[in-house]
Write a protein that binds this DNA or RNA. Structure first.
Lengths: 146, 146
DNA sequence: CTAGGTGCAAAAGGTTTGCGGTTAA
DNA sequence: TTAACCGCAAACCTTTTGCACCTAG
């Protein structure tokens, strides 16, 4: 059922943008929906290959780009590391661990968003924003109890 | 005088990190202090060449990396475009114009920072954060009065 | 049927690196 | 004096692109 619902969302969104549903896009999307680890294009490629060994990395890049453009997933960058992708569409920030490189979703209260919005008033037309935290994640804190 | 003060800050910070003062680092730093346009490494290279034609792009990259590591400048990324660099060390956000690609500093009130800080409490040790806005800058709004 | 999508391999673009020569402290 | 730094060119890595073939609608 969940699978079906996911497929419907993808299907309708693609159709709404005049794009086709393909097995490659479906598989890429399913990986993103199932993962909370913010995989890179390469990670996604490895996952998708399990179900469709012939898929190429270039196609995965293309599918990811399409999904980002449709607003079905988010692209998450940390400096110039490989881009990562995120299927969580709720407004949230990203926490990047300096020790292990992992990325975690951090929920933001509605308040935070309301607080931030007015900050742009000075002539800039803000369409979106992103917030990134950096530091040490709970697991790495245990490993290196500074 | 401003020049001298700038030089002192650079000098002392480098010394404090066991690093040498070189003419290349000084020139790179001066460019960043003088610019508010968030130049790329290539932009900086062009500027520095005016005073020292022999400087290489690789050296500019190295100098920028050193300055970032010393905390004297900030690195600003937008997706996978060329990195840009920022000499403004006040806590501020960056606004990226979707139309012309320009980057602008947006001051954040102390309040915003205080508001954001608690959001991480759930076990994450936050050391820094960044906020990026995207939209259309005032100039581009005039050109394309949607 | 046919426009849009895929796979492949090659190219692009930004950044880093290895190395011999140079220089700040 | 000598470890750190520089300039050069080549390497690197992620991402994009051109093209012939394939396929969803």
């Amino acid at each position: 059922m969940l699978r079906d619902k996911t497929k419907t969302v993808l299907d309708e969104t693609l159709a709404g943008n005049g794009l086709r549903m393909t097995r490659q896009r479906q598989l890429v999307y399913e990986v993103l929906m199932a993962e909370t680890t913010h995989p890179t294009a390469d990670d996604v490629h490895r996952q998708v290959r399990k179900k469709m060994p012939s898929v190429s990395l270039a196609t995965v890049y293309n599918c990811l780009e399409t999904l980002v453009e449709c607003g079905l997933i988010r692209q998450v960058n940390r400096d110039r590391d490989s881009s990562r992708f995120c299927g969580n569409l709720n407004e949230h920030a990203h926490f990047h661990c300096n020790a292990c490189g992992s990325v975690h979703d951090i929920d933001l209260s509605e308040n935070t968003l309301a607080e931030l919005a007015p900050k742009q008033a000075t002539g800039f037309q803000v369409k979106q924003f992103e917030i990134n935290f950096r530091g040490v994640c709970p697991q790495c804190q245990k490993k290196h109890p500074l």
